[in-house]
């Protein structure tokens, strides 16, 4: 049962014809070819598939394509600001927040959403925000530091 939907994907208006039951994660990865969004569990328990839906971080593995008409979707591929990396991306590189990198896309989308809402998060705010993003490599310490550094950089830019 295919359905026509119109979405804004990484800033571009896009028309898609998709099976209603196809999950957003599979739609992105298998049908559109945006494999930056990762599948870690498929059940909303790991956060690797986090994307921004209408500005809010959500698990793309738990959303039917059939309910997406009119949605605004941002994936890791849309995080860059023009040709430049987002400060949170650069901070992850600088601070060693990346190891295997498989949780990184989701972690970055969650971090970006946090920083959009809270420009000066405490360590606990950060840990609370990313508690739905599992990472098996880093022990989170360097990720937390990267988010703090990105927050500082963003605040500096604003002032």
């Amino acid at each position: 049962m295919k359905k026509k939907i119109q979405v804004t994907l990484n800033g571009k208006k896009t028309e898609l014809e998709v099976p209603s039951h196809r999950l957003l994660l599979d739609l992105l990865r298998d049908e559109i070819g945006l494999t930056g969004t990762k599948e870690g569990c498929g059940t909303g328990d790991c956060g690797a598939c986090t994307v921004l839906l209408n500005g809010k971080p959500v698990n793309s593995c738990l959303i039917f394509s059939g309910e997406l008409d009119g949605a605004d979707i941002v994936t890791i591929e849309g995080l860059k600001i023009g040709p430049e990396m987002h400060p949170v991306q650069r901070a992850f590189v600088q601070d060693g927040g990346v190891q295997c990198g498989y949780c990184t896309s989701g972690m970055l989308m969650m971090s970006k959403a946090l920083l959009d809402e809270n420009p000066d998060p405490s360590e606990d705010d950060i840990r609370f925000a990313i508690s739905g993003n599992l990472c098996r490599c880093t022990g989170y310490a360097k990720i937390v530091k990267a988010v703090q550094d990105a927050a500082r950089e963003l605040r500096n830019r604003r002032s």
């Binding site: 839906l53 698990n59 738990l62 959303i63 969650m110 959403a113 739905g132 993003n133």
Partner: peptide, 9 residues
């Protein structure tokens, strides 16, 4: 409940 991502949905 769940995570930030879950609570947004």
């Amino acid at each position: 409940v769940g995570s930030v991502q879950i609570r947004n949905r």
